[in-house]
Design a protein around this nucleic acid. Structure first.
Lengths: 114, 114
DNA sequence: AGCCCATACCTTTCGGCTCAAGGTATCATA
DNA sequence: TATGATACCTTGAGCCGAAAGGTATGGGCT
């Protein structure tokens, strides 16, 4: 497998990045992604919750329950393992988008330099 | 559907961009993407051919058969409709990647400016 | 002549991600 | 008391891309 489904994992990337900055809960993350990207990207709860659970299972996140106004919120924070994973995702994201950008901006190909 | 599967269509984008620069055939496109992106992105024939067929069906490409060294090649060129489609894909790509980049680079959130 | 690799086309199958939609429960408000 | 907002979650379907397999010709090697 050369490209591990080469564009996937962006939700994971965004979520880890948000949680690295501050402890947050699921419903809050959904809203935060919308506002932070000015509605360019809008992930539903059906995307966010499974990602949170998977990341916690892998040990990249840890959670604690907290009651606020009678409602229970599950707050997540990034573990050291999560930081490592985030760094890798960022590097991969940068590498791939740079490559695509170079490919689509290039005038045509290796033009003969005089 | 807010994000029409918001990261898809990159193969389509790359293929249209290559064909905009010059007429090419499938097998050649597969190799070109590998070299142009320095192996960062490597699309197999199982990705490229279906995209070519779909684009032609939609009228974004047109093809002509050409015999070279006894072998038949199917060369593709971009139609006006394809140019329009390409422009849209580039705009969408730029918009989304910029949004993600802004989100992951941002120090934390709206920090209070003094 | 016989064999294998490269070229060149194509399709099928599988897995994974995302989205939409639905399901539960509590609190505030009208 | 009913509706909407908050907050959690799961399920179903759809689509895309990856891998692998399938056909056929030409060139090179032995």
């Amino acid at each position: 497998m050369v490209n591990p489904n080469f564009m996937n994992g962006v939700p994971e990337l965004l979520i880890l990045r948000l949680l690295e900055a501050q402890e947050m809960y699921g419903y809050e993350i959904v809203a935060a992604i919308r506002t932070k990207t000015a509605d360019a990207i809008s992930l539903g709860e059906g995307v966010v919750y499974p990602v949170l659970h998977a990341l916690e299972r892998e040990g990249a996140l840890k959670s604690r329950r907290k009651a606020v106004n009678g409602r229970t919120r599950v707050y997540y924070t990034v573990t050291r393992k999560g930081e490592t994973r985030l760094a890798g995702l960022v590097r991969q994201w940068t590498h791939i988008t740079d490559s695509v950008n170079r490919a689509i901006r290039e005038p045509s190909h290796a033009s003969v330099t005089i």
